[in-house]
Amino acid sequence: MTGIRIDHLITSGTFSLDGGTWDVDNNVWIVGDDHEVVVIDAAHDADAIAEAVGGRRVTAIVCTHAHDDHVNAAPALAERTGAPILLHPDDRALWQMTHPDRKPDGELTDGQVLHVAGTGLTVLHTPGHAPGAVCLYAPDLETVFTGDTLFRGGPGATGRSFSDFATIIESVRDKLLTLPASTTVRTGHGDSTTIGDEAPHLPEWVARGH
């Protein structure tokens, strides 16, 4: 795994759904080496993301889900880099709310492996926060990119349209907390954590949600 690294960028903007708008800071993750990368969640600022990528080839722009704050810069970044935008098809309705005239270029499926710079990112379909939410597990890097499915302190929000609490709990329990405890959880917003730090709190989350 010589030369592969994870670059981290924070971009700022807004998130809008169900008639409300909130200011948000988003984590953008760039995974690869000096030659090629994937971008996870092209949020808010295509210019800043392109600057962080530099001269490297972008093999894919991966959307962990289609809330507008995670995909609003994706078409502009795709135009600049020529990279395909990949989204789970169950989030197509959410995507069309932000980009009605631009479809994603490819679909993500559970168990699919995306390859970049000699390593693999396994797609885990983790619905709940959004129907087509996915996480990307990179075992070689001991990392999982969870979007808004799992944060430091619990699962993502489920109080808005297209979300469901019981579903996100099932996704977190069955797809994420089964990963090695040492796995770093790199989230869509806020600080990173580990599977080992979060797993013991599952009963609290379930109790809190009912």
Rank of each mutant, 00 (worst) to 15 (best):
L77D: 04
H99A: 04
D90K: 14
R57H: 10
L94K: 03
V53Y: 11
E79G: 06
D91M: 03
R102Y: 05
R56H: 11
C63Y: 04
D91K: 00
H70S: 12
P89M: 09
D90S: 13
A60G: 13
D90C: 10
P84C: 08
H65R: 00
D68R: 06
L94F: 12
V58C: 04
I61A: 04
L77G: 07
T81R: 05
A66F: 01
A60Y: 11
A78G: 14
E79R: 10
R80T: 06
A78W: 03
V71F: 07
P89Y: 04
P75C: 11
R80F: 00
Q96I: 00
L86N: 01
A78R: 00
P84I: 04
Q96H: 11
P75Y: 04
H67G: 13
I85C: 03
H88W: 12
H88D: 14
R92W: 12
G82N: 04
D90V: 01
A93S: 15
P100T: 00
R57E: 15
A73R: 01
E79T: 08
W95E: 02
L94H: 08
C63Q: 09
H88S: 08
H99E: 05
I85G: 07
V71T: 08
R80K: 15
R102I: 10
N72W: 04
R92F: 10
G54Q: 13
T81W: 00
T98R: 11
T64G: 09
G55H: 14
V58M: 07
Q96S: 13
E79Y: 00
R80C: 02
P100Q: 01
Q96M: 10
V62K: 03
I61G: 03
H67T: 14
M97T: 15
T81F: 05
E79M: 05
A60Q: 11
T98Y: 08
L87I: 05
V53A: 09
L94A: 13
A74F: 05
H65T: 02
Q96D: 15
A78D: 00
G54D: 13
W95V: 03
L94R: 10
G82Y: 05
A66P: 00
A76C: 11
R80H: 08
T81M: 02
A66Q: 03
I85T: 04
Q96V: 00
L86S: 04
R102S: 05
A73F: 09
G55K: 14
L87C: 06
D90E: 15
P89S: 06
A66C: 08
C63K: 03
R56F: 10
N72T: 11
A74M: 12
M97L: 15
P75H: 05
V62C: 07
G82K: 05
V62P: 08
G55C: 13
P100K: 02
A66H: 08
H65V: 01
A78L: 02
P84S: 07
L87Y: 09
R92Y: 14
V62Q: 07
D101P: 00
R102E: 03
H88F: 12
H65K: 00
T81N: 07
A83I: 02
D90H: 13
A83W: 01
H70E: 14
P100F: 05
A76Y: 11
H99G: 06
G55Y: 12
A76E: 12
A73C: 11
